[in-house]
Design a protein around this nucleic acid. Sequence first.
DNA 1: AAAGTGAATTGGTATAGACAACTATAATTA
DNA 2: TAATTATAGTTGTCTATACCAATTCACTTT
Lengths: 240, 240
Amino acid sequence: MIDKTSPLPIYYQIQEMIRGKIDSNEWEPGDMLPSERIFAESYDVSRMTVRQAVTELVNEGLLRREKGKGTFVLEPKIEQTLQGLTSFTEDMRKRGLKPGSKLVKYNLDNPSLKFAEMLQMQGDQQLYEIKRLRLADEVPMALETTYMNKELVGELPEDIENHSLYYILEAEKGLKLGNGEQTFESSLARQEEADYLDIQVGDPVLLIKRMTYLEDGTLFEYVKSVYRGDRYKFTIKMPR
Amino acid sequence: MIDKTSPLPIYYQIQEMIRGKIDSNEWEPGDMLPSERIFAESYDVSRMTVRQAVTELVNEGLLRREKGKGTFVLEPKIEQTLQGLTSFTEDMRKRGLKPGSKLVKYNLDNPSLKFAEMLQMQGDQQLYEIKRLRLADEVPMALETTYMNKELVGELPEDIENHSLYYILEAEKGLKLGNGEQTFESSLARQEEADYLDIQVGDPVLLIKRMTYLEDGTLFEYVKSVYRGDRYKFTIKMPR
DNA sequence: AAAGTGAATTGGTATAGACAACTATAATTA
DNA sequence: TAATTATAGTTGTCTATACCAATTCACTTT
């Protein structure tokens, strides 16, 4: 089970082994792990090495230590709030609604001066403009427009999913995602928005703009979403 | 500097000492800490003990280790935004505006059924209702109403500051703060809000509700803020 | 039956030392 | 000069051990 000749540290092997037993439900929430001493003995490693493995998982929120009692498997973590921010789909699923998406506009063209500047694009590069109507249980919730530089993201299918897109960028293109920024403002629906969202011009809407940057600071995507004010409430969970 | 007879663990004393030097700018972002060996030697403790202190601070995001090079002070965390979420004052300062506050209503009374239930209050407990007009450069930005159970927070001055209030709760009352939750929605100004914010009834407003919980899950404060939609834009920075 | 006692078990803290892996710099060599 | 090689300094990993502090549980005493 533990390979002492492996280039991988022993504590890391133990750590992943524990994680595996939790993932596979061999160890379930509430279960007590073997005590550190027994653990160390049975794998013939030092107790401190076991502790290093366990400490990692405690920090990640998978395990809880209790002095005098033992180390226990915790309930799955509440949620990764900040990632949830980026995904309308997951957001809706959590609310028990069926997420949907309807493509409204799919455009690839030279950028306007405004976007060329914002996205730091060269003159010959092309800009995606993808407009989607976001649905929850088939009811329009938001009108979302995504802008991306084709130079960075490559060929895009019409049903882009940010989740996998980010993965492709990191894994295949070697790009490193940096920070993001999201703004919330209140506004009134304009004509186009009212049409798509099935509301009246002047009705309240929540305007969310998201900017995602690469590690070197270049803006990688700009997303503008207009949410129905009467149907949508945005929630942020704050750990601490 | 280090008291080996103290009931506080040595690694904890070292950890707080390092944190102090960073807070006081004695050690600034980019600076390299004394190497672990030198550190251990100069305080006459084991290197592992120093490592335990540093590891904590690395996990918190204050320090960064680099194999073969050293341990360095990082730029202040970005995640501080989530704390900044709670403070109108800091938020305005960051925008270069002078924050102000004007007390509009200060009430201590038995809670309505709605609040008694939400805040899990007993019938004989009393509820604070504090309504403040939030100003930026003397211009009204938001109308904020805070509800708190007097049983939990004790006597409140009229110029409450959440920052110090939280500290008092933890340090003096032994209460442990847990998670928080904040919702954003778009709405239209009602009469009272329009009056205070100097806008028209029906103008767009951003409605932010904050709930802060204790560790045991009881709701500790409920804050409802109505922001002018034309002046205020809420920003969240997302690390990663 | 209830309360107290003490041993065993658990995680928490701390030590002293060893070697590995990585980095930067100085010294050496081609 | 340019490339290579030692060398010293750094964090990373791991061992073996010791004692402390909190909890549990069997046992004894009241």
